[in-house]
Amino acid sequence: MAFPHFFDPWLFVAEFAFSIIAVLFCFLIFFRTKESYELTKHRGIRYFRNAFLFFGLSYVMRFLFNLVLLSGIAFDVILPRRIFWPIFMLPLAYFSTIGICYLVFSLIWKNAGSRALFWAGNITALALLGISFITRSHYTLLLSQSVLIIFAVILSGFMHTRRKKLSRTRILYFLVALLWLLNLWVLGPRRKVFSFGLQLLFELISIGVFWVIYAKVIRWAR
């Protein structure tokens, strides 16, 4: 089958492979820590698991969103924005924001009660969802999540003053959030903000980060 000249099948293959691997790693991290959580009901483990569950769902929604965009380009089937925006972008906004929140909560949970963190996470996620719904732009979501991540880094650093050294785990967490933002860029109408090579590089680094986290999980949560 001949593709229109502006449809890049390699981009589609790369996106598909990346999404499958990212989602697989996120869900594997969630399921491999199930027993550790069920035995202990440890809040830190709960937030950690939830973070990867929601990141997994975010990458599912990101892939579906991308699929609709790429199918539109390939087959000239353009779904009206008012239809596909709420279906894909709003769950994506909610899942990814709450995923970032849970990742932060896994580090700071001793400083707040379960209920407070539940409301803090959901109110933040719904607020960012509301902002992206009103503006109908994924760039506002990007901007809001960037602010959230900067705030999270400051907050987690402030609450961990006793640990002077920046740990590898924190760097990994930061990379998970940062790479999520970079991977979110490609969903915009100006898709060519990154070259194919650069986009592929971000996706490979993302897979590398997930792999490192998963390897640490299976080392201890067996």
Binding site: E35, S36, S106, T169, V217, W220
Partner: peptide, 24 residues
Amino acid sequence: DKGFRYLEKYAYIASFIDEFELGA
């Protein structure tokens, strides 16, 4: 049996919590 399982897994779980700084 669940109690025995906890004892068996405790060292791993404690290391996992430490590794990911989940003990806050």
